[in-house]
Design a protein around this nucleic acid. Structure first.
Lengths: 191, 191
DNA sequence: AAATGACCAAATTACTCATTTAGTCAATTG
DNA sequence: CAATTGACTAAATGAGTAATTTGGTCATTT
């Protein structure tokens, strides 16, 4: 069987997006890296955005898998949430592609990138929501609005991991877990 | 006594910053609105940024006052925090100047505006921190890191008020208070 | 039938030059 | 003579445009 051109293209595009971002990646470049004629790209993908979307979709799958792997059913709900979220956000910090896109979203506001980041956030929120609903059913946590709760959890995590260290010493993984437990799972109140 | 030229300049600049933002406000314009020669501005303020800073400093004072007024010492800590924070963020939504600056920060990234917004956030965090320390002393809430706690409270509030409604129906003031209580002050856990 | 790269319209960029602006200071005013 | 002013300048900005680049197509090649 001949080489899988579609796969070559996906790999080349992933490499280039990771290195230069979406906007600065040209289709000529992708074709060259993939050792493929430019026209060939358009037999597999309608346009640049669709190629991008396909790459992001597998990224989302990878993230889900990483999160699932970090959990196991014997863990308490809050350990699950912590490990899952931490895994997902670690992913963001470690993988070149997500770093580059995160940066491109904020610094240039490239529309295609903005769209894709919304999709990514939605995927995370949806995933969290599922876990929350399951936890309510099992009686592990109180009744609550799963949508809002997922939203709050994600925002809190992002704030602790990304925003906090813009102006302070980064928080350790354990500290974050502790804070999360203290606020979301126990509350501050004395009564 | 002659007219207070400094005050005229401050009022003119405030008006112009509110209407056009920092970057789009020219010193000629401020001078004209204030009915003052341009040189006069420079007898009171070293440069455009210093004029801007002075205006922001009084804005911060106004915010503090508004927050203080919304509280009273008979309220529980979480009612105080809720009313104070709500007041401050309402301020952001209602006052032309803060709206314009918020927009300029995100859309144009004007350096002087970015700087000033950091100062504003610091002022809010410092204010919150004080209240938190007082509450710990009075035994109203558990021991906690006041810096991190202030940070979490602000981020959570901003998320609930600004970020949530980017993609969902806005939350009512009462809902926000309830959520805040549920998460920060009570926690989700069943044990 | 699958793959290609020369080609084109549209978008982006690099550059220029006229205009605008922040800040100064010699002249003016009261 | 102390306070005020606005004409002035160097630097920054941005409108206009020419040159280049890019996404996408399609006739040709393999």
């Amino acid at each position: 069987m001949a080489i899988d051109r579609k796969q070559l293209i996906i790999e080349a595009a992933t490499k280039s997006f990771s290195l230069f971002g979406f906007k600065a990646t040209t289709m000529d470049q992708v074709a060259k890296i993939a050792n493929v004629g430019k026209g060939t790209i358009y037999t597999f993908f309608k346009n640049k955005e669709e190629l991008f979307d396909e790459i992001i979709s597998s990224l989302i799958h990878e993230m889900k898998r990483a999160a699932d792997e970090a959990m196991d059913s014997t863990l308490s709900f809050h350990e699950k949430v912590h490990r899952g979220l931490y895994q997902i956000l670690e992913f963001r910090l470690k993988h070149q592609l997500t770093i580059k896109l995160f940066q491109e979203e904020k610094e240039m506001g490239t529309p295609a990138v903005m769209e894709v980041m919304v999709k990514l956030e939605d995927a995370i929120l949806g995933y969290l929501k599922e876990k929350i609903i399951a936890a309510i059913d099992k009686g592990e946590i109180q009744e609550c609005n799963p949508e809002v709760t997922a939203f709050i959890m994600l925002k809190l995590y992002v704030a602790l991991i990304f925003d906090w260290e813009k102006r302070n010493e980064p928080l350790e993984k354990e500290e974050i877990a502790k804070l999360f437990e203290q606020y979301i799972f126990k509350g501050l109140s004395n009564r």
